[in-house]
Amino acid sequence: MYGGEIETFYDRLKASYEDCKDRAGTRRKRMGQVHTLATDLFAEWKIEINEIRDTNLKSASRKALADAQIRYAKLKTAMDRSKTAMDPVLTKLNDYVLYLKHNLNAKPVGALGREVVSIEGDVDRLIREMGASIQEADQFIKNF
């Protein structure tokens, strides 16, 4: 790779990083919204259980709340795992973008080419994991 090819490669890698960073930010925001929604929902549910006078209904509502909290705890674990996985991938990708930006020459680009394939695989896997977490969150919300 020489001249314009190097810059084209850099531009593509930088665009990929920016896209992944934006997607990660969107995922983090949605995860935060899911957490806020669940926390508010559970708090309201606990208060309202005390308003139920029928002991059987009150007991059933408490059980449903406990079950929902257990399901949410699993969802939160999946979301936390997804958030934790995003940062190292984004950091690694940003490192390569900055390195390439500062060293636009044929030798480092050749070495980076193999890494980019690996990074793109990491990013694709990360996006699939985030998508699964989002689907799980959406399903959780729909079940309410």
Rank of each mutant, 00 (worst) to 15 (best):
S59G: 09
R12F: 08
A132M: 01
E18W: 04
E129I: 03
E51M: 09
A111P: 00
E136D: 14
R30Y: 12
D40P: 02
G25E: 15
L98T: 15
L126A: 11
E115L: 15
G3R: 08
I119S: 05
Q33H: 08
R114Y: 13
G25Y: 10
L104C: 02
L93F: 12
Q139P: 05
L65E: 02
A24N: 15
S61V: 05
E51C: 04
F140Q: 02
R114D: 14
Y10R: 03
R30D: 08
V34C: 09
K74E: 09
S59Y: 07
I70T: 01
V34K: 05
I47Q: 14
L100A: 14
L65M: 03
A60V: 09
D138M: 02
Y17W: 13
Q33M: 13
G32L: 09
E120S: 13
Y10Q: 07
G3E: 07
V116Q: 05
D67S: 05
C20M: 12
D40H: 08
R125K: 10
E51Q: 01
E48A: 15
G110N: 03
V34H: 04
T77R: 13
R12H: 12
E136P: 02
N94G: 07
V117P: 01
N50H: 04
A38E: 01
R30K: 06
T91H: 11
Y72E: 04
P108F: 10
A68G: 01
L75W: 00
Y96F: 15
R125Q: 00
R114Q: 15
G3W: 08
L100I: 14
P88M: 08
Y96K: 14
K14Q: 12
T26V: 15
L112Y: 08
D40K: 10
K142Q: 02
L98K: 15
W45P: 01
K63I: 09
D67V: 05
A38W: 11
K83S: 08
F144I: 13
R30Q: 14
S82L: 04
A73N: 01
A137M: 03
R125S: 02
Q33G: 11
G25S: 03
A60R: 07
N56M: 05
E51T: 00
R28P: 09
V123T: 09
A68Q: 00
D22P: 06
Y2Q: 09
D54L: 04
T77Q: 12
